[in-house]
Design a protein around this nucleic acid. Structure first.
Lengths: 207, 207
DNA sequence: TAGATTGTTAATCGATTAACAATC
DNA sequence: TAGATTGTTAATCGATTAACAATC
């Protein structure tokens, strides 16, 4: 398999977290049925997911090596090669992301950007906050792979256009709108309103 | 259609945001091809999505009434009936959520809970932070529909068990792990590591 | 050896896309 | 009327699940 669906990609970090927990408990081998039971996936899905990213085959009757799985997953997910990012919008959500422990995921935040003069020049989560007008110069001076968009929805498209024009190829959008980007741009949306819609609907069914 | 897929549910808030923008621009009628072009969906998908939630049919050659769509979407998404929630874990991410403008989505945060004595008794985003030991009494005194979990992954399962035992039926989990919950529990995960995995993979393909 | 688990191939399921008649 | 857009039915596509031979 060399094509990965969105759902499948989203499962990999969940596997990794679980395997690291097992490793810390000195568990060296784990089988698909055990993983499936623990994470709520089907056995077949676990096997396919792990086969797709692991070099070492599993051993019938035993299972798979936890340490090998951790290595394969970290390699596949890119946790062993840093990608550099900036956070645009140092409000509450942007501030939380500037403080989030992304380093262990190979995701390094270089700096934050904002329009508010009161924020510019300060540091959040150990990262300096620059004026948005400094973005051009910053991107020219530093390799920036990903822009995290945490500005209000009303400004998200214009900030995105700027980021795209500066040659940044990855966008992690936290504004609750659809952003128009060129086809060769990588973009992933984290839309809390969308997430909440799924929860509300589930809750309506449960009640 | 009376069954909604996760993807479909996630699209509705995006439609709603767009229709509200149209409404503010005095646009009264909109057609599926226009919506599809703007939001990056297919025409057929737009028609099916809107048919599934709207009472009023669209008019051939014209399109659909923007105001009717807004009304239908707000009703369907539950924005017109408040659900009450609490945020457990008043760290950076929990703090951001306590400050997030959820009210317009019919989502009301009543209070925050934490273990840190320095946070207990303070207010974040206008919401008071209580000790986790006060949770039981709080839930008995207030109707709580949803618990937002923003504690570290290492404590998320135990907090979840507590929340479930108190009869809260909805869980919005921001900890990057799989939580075990009873079948009659509504749960939605927002896993930043998962989201990042999708972005990294896309970026690898784009580069 | 017996049996659990693997990897792989086939079947199922569900969502998206295509096709097209109905209609304003 | 002509033509754009609707609603609906059929076809396609892709992911998940089931089945089963291989193997340690």
């Amino acid at each position: 398999m060399d094509k990965f669906s969105k759902n499948q990609l989203e499962r990999y970090p969940v596997y990794l977290k679980y395997f690291k927990e097992l490793w810390s408990e000195k568990v060296a081998i784990v089988s698909s049925p055990v993983i499936a039971g623990k994470l709520g996936y089907s056995e077949e899905q676990v096997r396919k997911d792990l086969q797709a990213i692991s070099k070492e085959p599993g051993r019938p009757k035993k299972g798979r090596s936890v340490s090998a799985l951790i290595e394969d997953l970290e390699t596949f997910l890119g946790y062993r090669q840093k990608s550099s990012s900036i956070v645009i919008g140092a409000g509450h959500l942007g501030g939380a992301l500037l403080n989030y422990p992304f380093e262990e995921m190979g995701f390094q935040i270089l700096a934050g950007f904002d329009l508010d003069p009161k924020k510019i020049g300060t540091a959040v989560g150990g990262k300096k906050i620059f004026a948005l007008s400094d973005l051009n110069a910053f991107v020219k001076a530093n390799q920036v792979d990903i822009a995290v968009i945490t500005v209000p929805a009303s400004h998200a498209q214009e900030v995105t256009d700027l980021v795209v024009s500066l040659g940044i190829k990855g966008i992690w959008n936290f504004a609750p709108i659809h952003l128009e980007v060129p086809l060769n741009e990588a973009i992933v949306n984290v839309n809390l309103a969308s997430s909440l819609a799924v929860l509300s609907h589930q809750l309506g069914a449960v009640k």
